[in-house]
């Protein structure tokens, strides 16, 4: 993943007492969050996260007249103070939007795999399987979610191939993929391997283990095309139903040979 630039940090300043009437303040807070802004609410008790490079936009219970607005610096950072007493939630959001962006890609639902490295064994099966280039290896040859925005929304397919149940999709409906505790029965490798390998028309993982030419050529020769296609269709329907894999993703599945080739590449990458 690559790091984003610091965005504006909105502060609802209540150091000198509550800002706005509760209902209006809560509407403002909600609308800023829905607009993609991180908001720090100050108050009597508890502290807040430290200052960093983010520009501060401090909202106070002041009229919006220009002489209330001020620009200063705190620790070398620009601090803008704006009055919000005369504005409703829409007005506050519009004013904040003039100062900096909130949501970077509003049309993208943040759906992407998150790896639980306490469980991951770096086997590279996810990298071999993913069709969209979401995974790569980092400089320490460890599996990495390099391109989260390439992930197909609502597709949890790679979490099904992970033999260690190490891939999470926090916005998925069911556990353990959503981050719920992994139970012993979740680590049901044989079931997962059967489903995925029959989908591919052969046992890809045993093929991977025997990565010599003989096995590879037998793999392509022995397949009965019609039967394989039928079996594949049956498995696609089952996967779609059982595992919530979008039809769009299933339609794009490459051939077993193509996946085998990808797996070879993944394995080489992790060993280089």
């Amino acid at each position: 993943m690559s790091a984003a630039e610091a965005t504006v940090r909105v502060v609802l300043d209540q150091q000198d007492g509550p800002i706005l009437a509760p209902e209006r303040r809560n509407a403002v807070l909600r609308s800023l969050l829905e607009g993609g802004y991180t908001v720090t609410v100050t108050g009597d008790e508890r502290s807040v996260s430290p200052l960093d490079d983010a520009e501060l936009l401090v909202l106070r219970e002041l009229g919006a007249e220009a002489d209330h607005d001020s620009e200063s610096t705190e620790g070398g950072l620009p601090v803008r103070v704006r009055g919000v007493a005369d504005l409703d939630d829409v007005g506050v959001l519009e004013m904040v939007q003039r100062h900096g962006h909130g949501r970077v890609a509003p049309e993208w639902k943040p759906w992407f795999p998150v790896i639980d490295y306490d469980r991951c064994t770096n086997c590279m099966q996810c990298l071999s399987f993913c069709l969209f280039g979401v995974y790569d290896v980092d400089h320490e040859k460890q599996i990495d979610v390099a391109n989260p925005d390439k992930c197909k929304t609502n597709c949890p397919a790679c979490s099904r191939v992970c033999p260690e149940v190490a891939i999470l999709f926090p916005k998925y409906k069911n556990g353990p993929i959503n981050g719920d505790i992994v139970q012993a029965e979740d680590v049901d490798r044989e079931k997962m391997k059967t489903d995925i390998s029959s989908l591919l028309g052969g046992n890809i993982y045993s093929l991977l283990r025997q990565r010599h030419e003989h096995a590879a050529s037998r793999f392509s020769k022995e397949r009965d095309e019609t039967r394989a296609l039928k079996e594949r269709k049956r498995c696609l329907a089952k996967l779609q139903k059982d595992f919530d894999i979008p039809a769009e993703v299933l339609d794009q599945l490459p051939s077993a040979e193509a996946i085998l080739e990808k797996a070879r590449g993944a394995s080489t990458k992790s060993e280089e």
Partner: peptide, 26 residues
Amino acid sequence: ANSGVAFDAVPDLCELAARQDPALQR
């Protein structure tokens, strides 16, 4: 918000993580 305590609120931790937003560091 009604309790009067200070807090940090984020729009969506998943989204911040996907773009490695520096807000997560702080």
